[in-house]
Design a protein around this nucleic acid. Structure first.
Lengths: 112, 112
DNA sequence: TCGTAATATGCCTTGACAGGAATATGTATA
DNA sequence: TATACATATTCCTGTCAAGGCATATTACGA
C-alpha cells in the first residue's frame, strides 16, 4: 500500500477517517458504528496507522484511535493546482450566467 | 471503477491529469511525455473520460484530451472537513513553537 | 481506393487487496 | 491463576484492475 491515494481509495477507510474527525474511538466503537467486522476494522486501522493517518493510545484494554493531519495534508496539496484550475472555470461559468441574465453581477469575488 | 477516489489512486492517471493541467494533449503526446504504451494511455483515458475527469475533441486524426473540473471538485469537497481539522493543528503547532520561542530554554534545536 | 497514421479494444496473465473464519496476543478483574 | 473482554494476526479465497501484445477501428492523404 504505497501511496496515500490508494489508502483513501477504500470506502471503509474513508468512513473510519470521517468518524475519527469528530473524536477518537476504540476499535469496538468503529466496528459498531460502521457495522464492520472486528478483523476488518483492525486491518484497516493497521493500514491507516502505518501510513500515518491515525495514531493510537492505550486506555485500559482498549486502543483509542485518533486522526493525524499530515498525510491528509499531503493529499490535499496534490489538489492545489487543480483547485486553481477549476476556480477559473467557476468564474467563467459565473460570467456566462451573468451575461445570460444580462444583469450586472452583484456577487463579486472578495478582495483581501 | 466506481469512485473518483479509486480513479485518482492510479499513479499514471494522476500523471495524465497533471499533464492536462497545463494544456490539452493528444494520446500520442501523453504517450511520449509519460513514456507509457499507447494502449495503456488509451485505457487510462477511457477510465478518466467515463468518470468525467477529461473530455476530448477531435482534430484531424487526433483526439485532444482536456481536463474537466467537476470530479476533482467533488474529491476536493471530501477533504474540506479534514482541512479544517488540520488547520487547527497547524495553529496548535504554531502556538507551541511560539511558546518555546518565548520561554527561556537552554538548549534548543534549530528551527526553520 | 489504398495505405498509413492515430487511437481504441479484446484477450490473457499476473499481482494486489478486501473480507471471512479461526486463532493468537494482550489486558483487566475475580 | 483462571476467565472474560478487546484487539491483532494468520490463512484462505474471490475479485478486480493494470499491463503487454495483438488486432480492430477510424480518419486522413495520395
Amino acid at each position: 500500500m504505497e501511496s496515500a491515494f490508494a489508502i483513501v481509495a477504500e470506502p471503509n477507510r474513508r468512513a473510519i477517517l470521517r468518524l475519527l474527525l469528530s473524536s477518537e474511538r476504540s476499535v469496538g466503537e468503529i466496528e459498531r458504528e460502521l457495522r464492520l467486522s472486528q478483523p476488518s476494522v483492525s486491518k484497516h486501522l493497521k493500514v491507516l496507522r502505518e501510513a500515518g493517518f491515525v495514531g493510537s493510545r492505550v486506555e485500559a484494554q482498549r486502543r483509542l484511535y485518533r486522526l493525524r493531519p499530515e498525510p491528509l495534508r499531503e493529499l490535499d496539496a496534490w489538489f492545489a493546482p487543480f483547485r486553481r484550475f477549476w476556480e477559473q472555470h467557476v468564474d467563467a461559468l459565473a460570467h456566462h450566467l451573468d451575461r445570460m441574465d444580462h444583469a450586472p453581477s452583484r456577487k463579486r469575488k472578495e478582495r483581501p
